[in-house]
Design a protein around this nucleic acid. Structure first.
Lengths: 124, 124
DNA sequence: AATTAATAGAGAGTTGGTTTTCATGTTGGT
DNA sequence: ACCAACATGAAAACCAACTCTCTATTAATT
């Protein structure tokens, strides 16, 4: 039987509130505000079960730890801020990208990552 | 004084022959054919100095160990084969990608990765 | 050929991220 | 309120990638 605990609720709540992919460490930091005793192992365990339930999904970014985001969003890509290291979602996705592949190559998926400075870091 | 050793030559030769980004392990495997006693530490050391000399550069791919490729190539992106896990270079790069960013975001760089099946794996 | 200082190889050690262990605490059903 | 099962927290263990340490080897100069 699966139980309802304040730890789980805190973690899920963090992911619901921040609409950006977050690394484990940041999820832990934010959830600590609700449950100060929260251990990192519990964050790992909870994210693992949320993944298995299909509620969240993993975002892999080169050279960064795994990030997690809610699963119910449509196809999209990401922007990584080189200043604050935040990861933001991009709405649009250019068509025709698959044509970049050489002849004979079958493309099933693609990833686009933009790097630069986010709006907040640009103005400040 | 910097010396010319068969180990270094073997490693450089591997990178020169295979025109694809390779992970350390694969570089080691191939260079072992020329120098059977070659230790992995030497591969790391040599790649590090080649990086510092600017002869090679790092290719970071989500969820994969660092790959290395020769540095003198122009701007390009990569294709990852889900079957043989080889990484291939793409020649073209679509323009206008930077316009995917939201207002106020400054884009300085971008990464595109295609996933699928390479020509060899498709036909066999 | 001898010298000597850079390089190599083997294995130990480190690092960052993640999982496991186990004693303790908590939840939900009775 | 009680109890059994599940969940938690802390620390240890784990893992893969990478670096360091130390002794032996070897390239380049003499």
């Amino acid at each position: 039987m699966i139980r309802r605990t304040k730890q789980k609720e805190a973690i899920v709540s963090v992911l619901k509130k921040k609409h950006q992919p977050m690394p484990i460490e940041e999820i832990h930091q934010m959830a600590l505000k609700a449950v100060p005793s929260l251990g990192i192992a519990t964050v790992y365990r909870t994210l693992k079960s949320l993944l298995e339930e299909g509620c969240i999904k993993i975002v892999e970014l080169p050279g960064k730890p795994l990030h997690y985001e809610e699963a119910h969003k449509g196809h999209h890509h990401h922007f990584c801020c080189n200043t604050c290291h935040g990861v933001f979602e991009l709405e649009k996705c250019p068509s025709g990208i698959h044509q970049l592949a050489p002849k004979g190559f079958q493309v099933t998926d693609h990833e686009i990552i933009l790097y630069g400075t986010c709006a907040d870091c640009t103005t400040s």
